[in-house]
Design a protein around this nucleic acid. Structure first.
Lengths: 202, 202
DNA sequence: ACATTGAGCTTACAAGTGTACGCTAGTTTA
DNA sequence: TAAACTAGCGTACACTTGTAAGCTCAATGT
């Protein structure tokens, strides 16, 4: 077996181990190096062959989570293109995502308000990216002026993420309920923004 | 010096100590009993004369934070009564609150997505209370039907709390900017809700 | 006046932590 | 084939943690 390859494999197993520890009751700052090493099946000190710190591992996890988020967006765009309504499709896709990638979304949510400045800004960067994309999409699809499209996109992202937080540990029917509510709320925002744009054009 | 009184005083100093430890980098689950005791100026084991657990202290802190939140609401209502616009006044009051009570709001924000189910639901209870009050207020002030008023209130609370999170560690001018943006977003929601109610009445 | 109570202390211990140091053994390179 | 490299390991150390046990002594109750 190739040496580099083997190293990458171990690195992967550390990352997977960390993700698997991030359940309902653990955050990045509460998992210990030794715990991760134990779960990954390596000696505590071997950890350092791959990451300088637990924090470096943490940032890697946030990056991976951000990656997943962008794949989510891509998927949503594809599904929108094949019809079904923007808001409906987006929310549904999002809800499926947080169900399938429970721990990943939880990580983002938790570290967004977490205790580490580095993690917070890493998560913020990913969310910002989300907002920027949505703003662009809105402008090219509705022709709203930038300032209004941006406000709308920001509000929508916040509402969707809040709803995601609510849905995270909810039953299927609770999830459906949350989804339905947030869809209506997004429509409030969209219509309100439209109205504001109309007034701005007088 | 009265004995009960002295005990209460020590209890207070434990609580204050805990609050003072909850700065940018610490959450309830990351402060240790010994640390709190040290800060409060008592022996670690004396802690147990006042709280069964660190968790019991944590719940007490959340309760106190909730209390502060309700005082905030009361204050907002008073200021609204003396004119100035509901959204404007509410957001301004809220922003003043999180500036003056930095650590209290941070606690709520952090534990809202934290690792302890007990803390999470304690915070959720407080936020829910906020939403219920706002729903009632909206109904009695605008005559919107319950379902729409409730959706609106929920969305508004989420947006305001998100804005609060953003403003928490921001400079004064950044805060002003966040405040201005969230006001516009709240107006989107309000107008969208109004429109939805009008359509519902056809 | 005396006995009881209880807040706070000191001491002690087992468990878990991060990480420094040096070794082993397999892979890679020359 | 010999030399260099390095992923992973075992041992060790200094800390911090929660909390059990038992003491002190001032406030309280009788």
């Amino acid at each position: 077996m190739n040496r580099q390859e083997q190293k990458l494999r171990t690195r992967r197993s550390i990352i997977e181990a960390a993700f698997s520890l991030l359940d309902e009751q653990r955050s990045l700052s509460s998992i210990s190096l030794r715990e991760v090493a134990r779960e990954a099946g390596i000696a505590p000190t071997s950890f350092y062959r791959h990451f300088k710190d637990i924090d470096e591992l943490g940032l890697t996890l946030v990056d991976e989570a951000g990656l997943a988020l962008r794949q989510l967006m891509r998927q949503a765009r594809l599904r929108i293109a094949s019809g079904g309504g923007v808001i409906n499709t987006s929310v549904d896709t999002f809800m499926e995502f947080i169900t399938a990638n429970n721990n990943i979304f939880r990580l983002l949510l938790r570290e967004h308000t977490g205790t580490s400045m580095a993690f917070r800004s890493a998560v913020l960067r990913e969310i910002k990216h989300f907002t920027v994309e949505l703003t662009d999409y809105t402008i090219s699809n509705t022709g709203l002026p930038y300032n209004i499209a941006n406000l709308q996109a920001e509000a929508m992202v916040k509402l969707v993420f809040s709803a995601g937080a609510e849905a995270l540990d909810a039953s299927d029917e609770q999830k459906a309920n949350v989804a339905q509510r947030v869809k209506l709320q997004l429509r409030f925002v969209a219509n309100g923004a439209l109205q504001a744009a109309a007034q701005q054009n007088l």
